[in-house]
Design a protein around this nucleic acid. Sequence first.
DNA 1: GATGAATGAGCCTTCATTCAT
DNA 2: GATGAATGAAGGCTCATTCAT
Lengths: 199, 199, 199, 199
Amino acid sequence: MSREKNKRDQILYSASEVFAQKGYHDANVLEIANQAAIGKGTIYEYFDSKMTLYLEVIKFNIERYLTRIRNQVLSKTTFDERLHAFIICHTEILSENFKYAGLMMNNSADVVFNSKNSHETLKILADTRHEIVQIILDILTIGHEEGKFSSDHLDYYADLFFEMLNRSALRSLVMQLSKEKQQQEQKLLIHMLINGIRH
Amino acid sequence: MSREKNKRDQILYSASEVFAQKGYHDANVLEIANQAAIGKGTIYEYFDSKMTLYLEVIKFNIERYLTRIRNQVLSKTTFDERLHAFIICHTEILSENFKYAGLMMNNSADVVFNSKNSHETLKILADTRHEIVQIILDILTIGHEEGKFSSDHLDYYADLFFEMLNRSALRSLVMQLSKEKQQQEQKLLIHMLINGIRH
Amino acid sequence: MSREKNKRDQILYSASEVFAQKGYHDANVLEIANQAAIGKGTIYEYFDSKMTLYLEVIKFNIERYLTRIRNQVLSKTTFDERLHAFIICHTEILSENFKYAGLMMNNSADVVFNSKNSHETLKILADTRHEIVQIILDILTIGHEEGKFSSDHLDYYADLFFEMLNRSALRSLVMQLSKEKQQQEQKLLIHMLINGIRH
Amino acid sequence: MSREKNKRDQILYSASEVFAQKGYHDANVLEIANQAAIGKGTIYEYFDSKMTLYLEVIKFNIERYLTRIRNQVLSKTTFDERLHAFIICHTEILSENFKYAGLMMNNSADVVFNSKNSHETLKILADTRHEIVQIILDILTIGHEEGKFSSDHLDYYADLFFEMLNRSALRSLVMQLSKEKQQQEQKLLIHMLINGIRH
DNA sequence: GATGAATGAGCCTTCATTCAT
DNA sequence: GATGAATGAAGGCTCATTCAT
């Protein structure tokens, strides 16, 4: 890994931290530079603008998220195992990086909406969400193949399930639920999904 | 209704529009004033600061939302009717006020987080969400009373269902689904809820 | 005294209070109106502008000061008595109206300097100072007539003595000197004046 | 001298000019920046706020004043020489920097009084005045050591003399007195001081 | 005459971005 | 490549003043 790549990542890490803690507008470039222990001007050697950096940060974190999720999910084979792995892993990542969660899970549409290249950037955000939903869809498809439910509307269920899981994980964190209570709610979530889909 | 109340509402309407379109930070007070066809200073006669206005806008829209939802929901008696009414009404409001949706449904936590009085304001936001979830919980309780499902974990389901409905309605709008397709998905949603809860 | 005159004075009293406490720029018209228990607009029925009001306030207070000083001083006849009366009375007024002191004694030149009619207003301020110095000069002239010192440079001494007395009185207040210590310093002041003048 | 120090001083010089001409409130930051031929934002690289700048300007000018006064006064040894040097130098500085005079000699208490850190800043202003008075007191002490007068109340006399000298110098400037007349009044001042103190 | 709602000019301050070193 | 001093556009907010009632 080249020195350049290192410094770029260094910025991305620091920016993740700061954006996560302060949000796009209240984060400022100087703080990110300080966090990365580099000069303010250096950021502009690697990123065109604050907005570009922000989008790269989101992509960066989603990439990290996706890599980890895929590692966990694809190491399993059955529907039950994969779903379980997904829920566990997703919740884990969220609790580990409570601060970063918003960067990945919230659609930052409001932030991006008014930037010059809003069209392009909104597409990126939509695409990344789509990619996560796709993983869920893959899991559901296995469920269908296992005869657990029909293949109807699986994309709809996948989309909704992502939202449910997010909310459920966030709830656990905000309410500081015990490990047991957390596991109980995870079971409810799975139950809700499977029975909700089945006809 | 006094002249004062009128102008205050006038500002709230205009601010809703601008905040919804641009988000908190990219909206500026002058634009809100122009939209309301009043002077910039007038806004500060009715609201202490931009942030105060923003929070009042959220409360204002949630109030409108809650009033309308309650009118529709409470005019029904059975679980099925009330749930249906809630879904229809919620979806309707969202589609009518696509722009404003974010002001009510997103938790604006990131915007508020760094403001001085963040503690108090975050509480307001949490409270309003809670109020909506409470309406759903009331509906679910009727379902329980009708023997449709047990009373276990209803608050958890209510919380999640709100997220699901939001996402579902948003999907319809973004994907510009036909009326039929929309109704179909609503049925799926209800199905998912009822079967998901039932043990 | 007409109702109008009353309201005008009412404003002048309130404005004195507020200007004295906050200074010209940090005082605001609303506060003065509130203090006078009248509407903000009413002030502009009696005074053209905030600056005009400020100048009238200064004149108003100097008038009150001069009237009182003259009453005291002119009731005496000898140099010693008059000088003593002047010192006592001046110190008394300052201690009673510590807050207002600045309005009379400081030259508000810096405040006025940039107003549109600065030339005219600066003249007013200079004139009022001159009027006070004139009273001192009259006292000194009696001292000369009593053979206490020559008539040379009496205007110079009068001018300086006003500054000395002001500082001396201010010192007493700031340092919160005891009555005895105060009287001692007054004696020193008189001593300094008489011996300073005498050749 | 570093580039930074240069620019900071550059700002201090320009700010002295503008503050002296317009007073604190009527001076505005843009004008100071223009005067210094720099961007408005640059001022905030060197000073936290307009108020901070103002206080630094006062300190800056008093420092210049004190340095110069001390150089002149300490190069002399006898009471007469030192006193004369002080008067000459003080008057000189005032006439050279007529505009800046107010920044050093007036207590800017009214400007500062309502600022947030008023307590701290008022102390600074009081301290600087004290420092000047101390120089006078040192001179008077030499006079006492030379047997010219007793050591009683010298601090009181020093305090008052500062006020007298200021007024005297200001008078000269305002009245545009001739060099001769000026020197004559200086003699009167010294005479007044020495005879005023002597018992 | 009295009022205070409405106004907008004006100002301090921030901060993303540039560019000379 | 790295830096950070310099910049100025932009924006929230204040408040003296006006004027319709």
